[in-house]
Simulated scan of single mutants.
Amino acid sequence: MNFLGKTAVAALAVAFASEAAATEWNVSVWGKRRAFTEHVEKLAELVSAKTNGEFTMNVSYGGLSKNRENLDGISIGAFEMAQFCAGYHRDKNRVVTVLELPFLGVSNLEEEVAVSKAVYAHPAAAEEMEQWNAKLLMTSPMPQYNLVGTGDPRDTLAEFEGMRVRATGGLGKAFEAVGGVPTSVTATEAYQAMESGVVDTVAFAQHAHLAFGTINQADWWTANLNPGTVNCPVVVNIDAYDMLSDAHREALDSSVDEALDHYLANYATLLEKWDSVLAEKNVAKVEIDEAVLAEFRAKAADPIRDAWIADMEGQGLPGQELYELVVKTLADHRASN
């Protein structure tokens, strides 16, 4: 073989080596880019930068799967990473639903990150996710949910009686405990449900009221109901994770906290603007009386928590231990700050 031939073979070998070193992941989320997906976008940016473009993520907003089917897609390897919300399929992710119990007392996003990390790290959570070939990577921390509604504000428990509310998971159970009629239509269906009168009210975090347009249907918003929130993990396919090179795995793992920090900073900016959004859209800000909140907590918090623990223990899961882990993590987080 002449020199040119050897050079061509060497160049081809380098090309093949470079191709083999490249990793491309598909990531399934839904809706549109918003505060709820900023950590996923930041993660993709960081990983690409740390690997000089050798590890890239294609974030797809609904093009790969329906939001209720993302965990199924992960289980069969249809894509490598996905976001989902526990309330969409409570039977598939029972452990993390502890984070959706009403009135847990989580007061900010930093605390939500802390309790989520603790629960995700529990062996029961990892074991349950393994059934879906999924590894919990990071949470999508959201503030306490609050209602938007049409017509006269509903600011007493008597007015919650018969109220058709879009609320999933533990939030749905909380409203049911005071006579509400919860429906678990997906986030992308909420605007239409409100517009058509299928629901009277929608429970969302602020970003979702903006992103999915429910704020545009609203006459009022409850500023301080704060019944709880939903938990929405980002997971990766275990096989895909295990196939990463050490360098690419390190790039992914080391970027999680930074991606979450970016998410928190971005969300803080959104919250600062929230009052001006309400004013711009002529949505009344409703403050619920403390006595009403206390009555709501009494009817919803303890009974639903006790029922959840009994249900989990009956299925062989450490329900009491998981609840106590959340309480302890909250206390420890506050003590360290």
Rank of each mutant, 00 (worst) to 15 (best):
K299I: 01
P318G: 06
L260C: 03
L4Q: 15
S336K: 04
C85R: 11
I309L: 13
N231V: 13
M194D: 00
R297M: 14
G169D: 08
A300I: 02
S18W: 01
A208F: 09
E290Y: 03
N282R: 12
V326H: 04
S336N: 04
V106Q: 10
S75M: 02
G162E: 10
A17M: 14
I304H: 01
S276E: 14
Y241G: 08
A174E: 06
F103T: 03
A174M: 06
L171M: 04
F84G: 05
D246A: 12
C85K: 05
V95S: 13
F79S: 01
V185H: 06
N337A: 12
D239W: 03
D261Y: 05
A8V: 11
V286P: 07
V198I: 01
V148Y: 07
I304V: 12
T183M: 15
P143R: 14
G170R: 02
Q206C: 02
W221C: 00
H89E: 12
A13G: 05
A310N: 13
A208W: 05
S48N: 12
D289F: 03
A291P: 00
Q192Y: 08
K328Q: 15
G316D: 09
G62E: 07
V286I: 15
V199Y: 01
G5C: 13
E161H: 10
D242H: 11
G319N: 06
V106P: 00
Y241F: 15
N224P: 04
P123Q: 14
R33S: 14
V40L: 15
I76C: 04
V198Y: 02
A203S: 06
A307W: 15
L109P: 07
I215E: 01
G77D: 06
D200G: 00
Y323P: 03
I288C: 00
Y145T: 14
I76M: 08
L171C: 02
L157V: 11
A86K: 01
G63Q: 05
K66Q: 03
V115D: 12
T23D: 12
K328Y: 06
S18E: 12
R94E: 11
A259M: 07
I238A: 09
A114K: 03
L244I: 04
E127H: 07
L325P: 10
A124V: 01
H207F: 09
V327T: 11
E287H: 04
D332H: 07
A17I: 03
H333S: 06
A44E: 07
V234E: 06
T183F: 12
A167E: 08
L101T: 05
A114T: 00
C232L: 09
A22T: 10
K50E: 12
L260H: 05
N266L: 06
A11M: 08
D91I: 06
L147I: 14
V59W: 07
V14G: 04
L43K: 11
C232R: 02
N224M: 04
A174N: 10
A15G: 03
D246Q: 07
